[in-house]
Amino acid sequence: MISENIKIFVGCDPNNCDLEQLMVLEHSVRKHTQHNVEFIWMQLSHDINSPWYSDQETNQGWSTAKWATPFSGFRWAIPELCDFKGRAIYMDADVVVLCDIAELWSHPMSDEAIVIAKGGKSSARLCTCVWDCSKAKEYLPPLDEIRSDPDSHKNLMRLIKDKPQLVEPYRDSYNNIDGEDLTIEQIKVLHYSDMGTQFSHKYAIPRLAKMDQKHWFDGKIMPHPRQDLIELFDEYYAEALELGYKPENYLIEPFGTFSKATQINYQGNKVTRPDQETNWFNKQIRKIKAKFKKPTFTLDG
C-alpha cells in the first residue's frame, strides 16, 4: 500500500461546463484503486489567494488568451504547489481511468527525467503525466513568474522539446487517445481527447442550455466513431450516479468570461476523424513529403 496520498491535479473548465467529466473521472479512479487519492481541481478563480487566480481585465494572474483550453498552462504549477516534494499526477478532465492509478504513480523514472508522459524521442503528451516535483525544481521558473508571463506555457513546452531527456515515456495505453485501435481491455487510461466528439457533451450541453449557457468549446460537435467507448462512458456515468455522485456536487461559482484560442476550425485527430484521410491522392502526397521532411518534436497543447 502506498503510504502517501496519490495527488491528482485535474485541469477543469471554470464555468461548470464539464461537471459530468469530473464525476466520471473521480468515480473511475476510485473504482479501480484501494489507495488514498486526493483530487485537486484546477479552475480559474477570482480569489487572489488561489493559485489559479486570474483577472482578465487587469492582466493579473494567469493569462489564458493563447491557451487551447481554460487550463492548458496550469500543469507547470504543480511541482511548486507540492513544495517540490514527491510525485503528482496531472490529467485533463476528459479521462476515464481503467486501471489502478497506483500503476501510473509508481512508474519507474530515469535519473534525467522530471516527468513521465506519453511519447519518445520525437513527441511528448503531457495531458496525462506524472511529475517528480523535486527534480522539476531545477528546470521550472517560480510560479509567480510562470503565472505572469502570457508565453510561459509555450516557452515551457519548448523546454521539453529542447530537452526530450526530461520526459520518461510510458506505455501508450496510459494515455490512450480516443481508442487508437485498442480494445477496452487493453486500455489503461482512456483520454477522449477530441473536443468535438467528447462523450460528455450529450449530458453537459442540454444542462447548460437550461441555464442559457454555452459550452466553452466553440467548434463543431460530432459523434465519436467508437460505439463501445461511448457505451463505456455511459456505463461509468450511470455507475457514478448509483453510487451517489452527482454533477452538481462539482459546481463552483462560475468564473465568467475568459480569453482563449477559438476552436471554430478545430480538426480533432485521425483516430476520431478518419474521413480526413480518405482522399487517396492527398494521402499519397503527404506520405511522399513525410519521407523528405526533417523530423520534428511534437507536443500536445
Rank of each mutant, 00 (worst) to 15 (best):
S3G: 01
N5W: 09
N5Y: 14
F9M: 04
V10N: 08
N16S: 02
L22I: 04
V24F: 05
H27W: 07
S28D: 07
R30G: 00
N36H: 15
N36K: 15
N36A: 15
Q43P: 06
Q43F: 06
D47L: 11
I48G: 03
I48W: 02
S50R: 10
S50K: 10
W52I: 07
T58G: 00
Q60R: 11
Q60G: 02
G61A: 02
G61T: 00
W67V: 09
W67P: 08
A68W: 10
A68E: 11
P70A: 05
S72N: 13
R75Q: 12
A77S: 14
L81I: 01
F84G: 02
D94H: 12
V97T: 11
I101G: 04
E103R: 06
S106I: 00
D111M: 14
E112M: 07
A113G: 06
V115A: 06
I116T: 12
G120M: 00
K121C: 05
L126D: 03
W131P: 07
D132H: 05
D132N: 12
A136R: 03
D149F: 00
L156Y: 04
I160V: 15
P164Q: 09
L166F: 08
V167E: 03
D178N: 11
Q186S: 11
V189K: 06
V189G: 06
T197I: 07
Q198I: 09
S200W: 13
K202H: 15
Y203C: 03
P206T: 04
A209P: 01
A209Y: 02
K210I: 00
M211I: 02
Q213H: 06
K214E: 12
K220F: 06
P223S: 08
H224Q: 09
P225K: 11
R226F: 13
Q227P: 09
Q227W: 03
L229H: 11
E231A: 12
E231P: 03
E235S: 14
Y237A: 01
E239Y: 02
A240F: 06
L241S: 00
E242T: 02
L243M: 04
L243H: 01
N249Q: 14
I252H: 06
F255P: 01
T257S: 11
K260H: 07
G268A: 08
K270C: 08
V271H: 10
T272Q: 05
Q276L: 13
E277Y: 14
N279Q: 13
W280K: 15
Q284R: 12
I285E: 11
K287H: 13
I288C: 10
F292I: 11
F292G: 07
F297T: 09
